[in-house]
Amino acid sequence: MSQPLLSVKNLSIVYEVPNLDVVAVSRASFDVPRGSIVGLVGESGCGKTTMARAFTRIISDNAKITEGSMDFDGKDLAKISEREMNDLRWRDIAFVPQSAMNSLDPVYRVEYQMHEVLRGRGGMSRSQAKARAAELFEMVGIEANRLRDFPHQFSGGMRQRVAIALALALNPKLIVADEPVTALDVIVQRQILDQMRALQRDLGISIIMVTHDISVVAYICDRTVVMYAGEVVEDCETATLLSKPLHPYTMGLKNAFPDIASAGTGILTPISGAPPDLARPPAGCRFAARCPFALDHCRSVSPTLMSFGDDHSVACHRAHEAEALRAQAALPETWGEIL
């Protein structure tokens, strides 16, 4: 196997707020193989955006990367100088935000914002940029004459396409997409995901797909990393994750979302309770308070992420019993008991 494009090891990110530290990402590790789509899934507030933004190293003023490494193509993104990092931004690592509306400057035409990247960062001439912008629009299925429009003149779905076109502008190796389709309706979601998949194949790039929606992961991702309360709890191929999940949280997530491909009919069972406060995480397994299978042991000893079978990592004390737990997890009652 070739070297992964991005290899995250023991990454911790802390928000410093007065009198306390919010550890939004704690000792997270996973790989992004070349030419693949890796999903990063978990409930809102579990640290996905924080981690995604760390790959560009544009994080909030009060955020700090306190430990760990992010090896990208032989460079540790946590260590390289700001100049080196800025060289990588957008040329090698591009970003698709959740709300393209707010991430495009309302006072400039889309063309201007395209040229800003193509000429300012890609060193193209005006005419090269013009041609490239038209080509990019064509790639994401928008007519080139709409380049002259302002951001607010596009529909929600169209704007996300514009954001994708912008991300592709400089032929990056990695695109980090933070909930790129969350704000859209299911039909448009599917169209855009199809397009991203096609472009990813044609161009051979890698994508990190951040989402809280496991059906998006199921639809498009080759591999999936499940996060809970700032920690990576499971990491494997998506097919394995869906058929043979090892972590109770993953089992619960699966029950909580409809299937994007088949407009699912099954009953949805949410996981009751709320994730712990990241400023004061509990001892032991962070999921224990909501886990139907928690043992006393779980509440005192933290499970570590361990390899479990081929290419499958999980952080759960009862992973070896997973088969039996899966059967129970399939029953709605299992999740209803806990308040």
Partner: peptide, 21 residues
């Protein structure tokens, strides 16, 4: 605003970020 953050993520120059946006 998000678009200023994104301008930073794009690696645009400080002049572009502060003045133009």
């Amino acid at each position: 605003e998000d678009f200023v953050t994104m301008a930073k993520v794009k690696g645009l120059s400080p002049y572009t970020i502060v003045i133009k946006h």
